[in-house]
Design a protein around this nucleic acid. Structure first.
Lengths: 165, 165
DNA sequence: GGTACATATCTCAGTGCTGAGATAACACGC
DNA sequence: GCGTGTTATCTCAGCACTGAGATATGTACC
């Protein structure tokens, strides 16, 4: 049995609020630390993280609609246009109008893009692996499960209740 | 020199690499989902997340050096100057030159700033609490522990080893 | 005291992105 | 066909920063 002391009455924030705020802080810090290392590694390969994400998605899935890429990378509609424009400008991807829907547009790797991502992604993946090595395999699996649950729940919530009109 | 090693040549990525990449993806997605809700809530209160962070830090800790704020909020030196400039422009904080070190500069809440953060933070904290409610108390404690370990380990690592010439 | 380096903040050009709106194309019922 | 609404992409002004360098001040060692 755990010795539960009588709760102090003058708590400014409830225990559960403190816990949630703490989780938010460590989530943000962990993300920032991992992201910084990943970004540095991507930059050494001449890419931003988002660009690397586009190329990896196309390598892994084949041609994708702009909208599919957008959902996968969590950027805005303007953002995905901008990203693909830049990669296209460097000759790494090309657009191809969909034959079924003339609004839609597939993006696919050029030969140069395929060569680049094949050459660079394995090294980047090793960087990520090293970055995550602070947790053991079992802990990593636990973290994946917890973060997936948290992320899905948060993504499906309504925005926080607005102050009543 | 191209001798085929007795390695399973067709294994594209090791299990541990896959696990690390998966963790990176769910970390990024969880962060994005939580951050989006927090940002929306902060915006409804007329603040960015970084601004809210500055005010909360000053409320919690009292006057802080610009450099201390910078470390706490994980922004660049230019970023903290920009942030404090904007809050100062709105009359929510003020600068006060340190008496001991004429390079250094304390930032403190004005009365208006103190009033604003006291009025807005509790509601924001409730938003965070709701956002995290996809995990139960026990899961939240586990997540905090795992993310703290991961974040500290990643923050202390050297950048990923550059390709040797 | 002087020289060298370290530290705290500021400046500013540049960047990657957002988000609101525009445009064009599709889909459905009439 | 015609309206009404939805969807996919693009445009663009604007924003919240970054990061390299500048400036000013502090510290250490001769």
């Amino acid at each position: 049995m755990t010795t539960t002391k009588p709760q102090p009455l003058r708590r400014e924030r409830s225990q559960s609020t403190e816990r949630a705020l703490k989780l938010w802080v460590v989530l943000a810090r962990a993300f920032a630390a991992v992201e910084a290392r990943a970004r540095t590694d991507a930059a050494r390969r001449g890419l931003t993280l988002a660009e690397l994400g586009v190329l990896e998605a196309l390598q892994h899935k084949g041609p994708l609609l702009l909208g599919e890429l957008q959902a996968k990378l969590l950027v805005s509609s303007g953002g995905i246009t901008y990203l693909v424009d830049r990669l296209q400008g460097r000759g790494l991807v090309r657009r191809r109008r969909s034959p079924d829907d003339r609004r839609a547009c597939y993006v696919e790797l050029t030969r140069a893009g395929a060569r680049l991502i094949a050459a660079e992604f394995p090294g980047h993946a090793r960087c990520i692996e090293q970055t995550m090595s602070g947790l053991g395999p079992r802990e990593q699996r636990e973290a994946i499960q917890l973060l997936r649950t948290l992320g899905l729940a948060a993504a499906e919530m309504e925005p926080c209740t607005a102050p009543e009109p």
